[in-house]
Design a protein around this nucleic acid. Sequence first.
DNA 1: ATTTGCAGCTATGCAAGTGTAT
DNA 2: AATACACTTGCATAGCTGCAA
Lengths: 118, 118
Amino acid sequence: MVWPGNIRQLKNMMERVLIMGSQNALIETEELPSNTGVGDSKDGQIVLSGSVATHSLREARELFEREYLLTQINRFGGNISRTASFVGMERSALHRKLKSLGVVTSNRSGGRVASLDE
Amino acid sequence: MVWPGNIRQLKNMMERVLIMGSQNALIETEELPSNTGVGDSKDGQIVLSGSVATHSLREARELFEREYLLTQINRFGGNISRTASFVGMERSALHRKLKSLGVVTSNRSGGRVASLDE
DNA sequence: ATTTGCAGCTATGCAAGTGTAT
DNA sequence: AATACACTTGCATAGCTGCAA
């Protein structure tokens, strides 16, 4: 098996599994992350699988925010201004957040897609 | 009106409605399940429907964090200390967050969560 | 659309304390 | 008494956001 994430994530994950272990005394395969834990969003619905089981609050929250914002940006055809006002934050703040979340907005004049960066 | 989900969802919903009621002193129809967008969590999976379509980032994030934390707390049998170390934050910080999110932990003696049940 | 500096608010870690149950 | 948690609070600092440019 090849670890899909970076070192920091591996470290965090291991620590959490160990904590679990202290309670279950046995670490099973199911407790290991099978994927990033990011589900797809369809029909205004967001699904985060695995994230609950293997991610810290901060990580899970970031996964959620990515999904949420990507969904909204797509909903507004890549228009950041409209997206910002809809999600209730300043354009500049949204820009900074997208940047910190690693969301790339391939928008230009008629552009309308936003995707994950990795 | 017919409840569209399962029993657990209903329970979670009611709990949240009550929590909100304690702060708003008035429970309105809009605060009812049909549009809270809170899904249930099973098999380490969280589903937030509607939240994407009708809530601001902050609101959606809070809904997510509630689900996430309730799930984790239940996973650890209501033990806040273990939950805190697992989700990667200080016990005190977790307490404050739970309070701000309106999550009630009717715990006493050994501890067993009061929100969800398996 | 995107970035940045700045001020104010929020969240969190750390430490210390209180209360309860085993 | 001793241990283990739950819960709270003061404080300093790190992070996030609005506003203006």
